[in-house]
């Protein structure tokens, strides 16, 4: 076994995760290869360091979980209720919006019809094209339109 392949397996070796044969071969190599020995010591160092990190961090939860979980269960149902009402609200609002939008559409349609009839009444000598109609049917009321173009 060459150094490269040994190093590939060192990690598993220090965790005791190799087959007997593999372990034997690694140990045989380690017996004479100083640089791989060094490598293994470093890996062990890292493993120890990580282990120490876990044990010296004297962290404890601030609260008692077992006493709180029922409370949280309740909170969960509140959350669910809140989410439910929020969803309903959104649906209601969008429905209202839809209805209002339809109404507005109807109104605009009516307005346009009215306008067209006014144009027709003026015997077509106003010479309006489609763009003009489009431009004002949103904002200008028919009355204003009539006032703007008094009878000639």
């Amino acid at each position: 076994m060459d150094c490269e392949r040994v190093r590939q397996k060192l990690s598993a070796y220090i965790d005791g995760d190799l087959t007997f044969a593999e372990k034997e071969r690694i140990e045989e190599h380690l017996r004479f290869c100083i640089s791989c020995q060094k490598e293994m010591r470093k890996l062990l160092g890292l493993k120890n360091l990580l282990r120490i990190t876990y044990t010296i961090l004297a962290i404890e939860p601030k609260r008692n979980f077992s006493l709180h979980w029922q409370e949280v269960l309740q909170r969960k149902s509140w959350q669910r209720a809140f989410l439910f009402s929020l969803t309903s609200l959104v649906i209601v609002v969008s429905l209202c919006g839809l209805v209002m939008w339809r109404n507005a559409q109807e109104e605009v349609k009516g307005l346009r019809e009215e306008m067209v009839s006014v144009v027709a009444l003026s015997d077509g000598d106003l010479d309006l094209d489609r763009n003009d109609l489009h431009a004002f049917h949103h904002s200008v009321k028919v009355v204003e339109f009539v006032e703007f173009f008094p009878e000639r």
Partner: peptide
């Protein structure tokens, strides 16, 4: 993961840092 962690540590503290724990 170990390879990565080790490389980063040695980058900052030098090659011998891990022998402190071995």
């Amino acid at each position: 993961a170990r390879k990565l962690v080790r490389a980063r540590l040695e980058e900052v503290y030098g090659e011998e840092i891990l022998s402190l724990w071995s």
